[in-house]
């Protein structure tokens, strides 16, 4: 089924008020999460907090529209795939430091402190951790709210 049809299906998810508000707000949450991740080395925040915000924007989709819309946007398979890719990217960044000397060496030029593109590998590590944490928490919430439902309930 097309994703627009599932979104308009009135039997799924919550009421129309919740759906409209969350449709307006979800993109702002996503952008705020990206801001927290990308500016993690300059302002408070970083990969862990930003990753949880990214996961929350998808959790809002699950809560408001039901699990089907969220699965159509990103299925459980792709969520665990992003989880693994984030963890792998973090380890690979660590091993790339070996070309300069030791594990997790900050091998990229540090640049001017305080600018967005600075601090070598720290923004890259932040992005990898954010992808890992966000995808992992989204996957586990998807599993808790869809697969973890008691089988006697009828709305599966």
């Amino acid at each position: 089924m097309d994703i627009k049809e599932i979104t308009r299906d009135k039997s799924l998810g919550m009421t129309i008020i919740v759906k409209t508000i969350s449709r307006l707000i979800v993109s702002f949450i996503l952008v705020f999460g990206l801001y927290i991740v990308l500016y993690g080395h300059i302002t408070p925040g970083g990969g862990f907090a930003g990753g949880v915000i990214l996961a929350i924007s998808y959790v809002l989709l699950i809560l408001a529209f039901g699990g089907k819309v969220a699965v159509a946007k990103m299925s459980g398979f792709w969520a665990s795939m992003w989880d693994n890719l984030g963890a792998l990217a973090f380890v690979v960044i660590g091993f790339l430091g070996l070309i300069g000397g030791y594990f997790f060496l900050n091998f990229i030029n540090h640049g001017t402190p305080g600018k967005l593109i600075s601090a070598g590998i720290i923004p890259l590590c932040n992005i990898a951790i954010a992808v890992k944490v966000g995808a992992a928490l989204y996957a586990v919430f998807l599993a808790l709210s869809i697969y973890g439902r008691i089988s006697t309930e009828e709305d599966e």
Partner: peptide, 14 residues
């Protein structure tokens, strides 16, 4: 540790 706490909370809920 806070984020790991969230992971273990999900494990306990499961």
């Amino acid at each position: 540790s806070i984020v790991i706490g969230l992971g273990t909370l999900a494990l306990m809920a499961a």
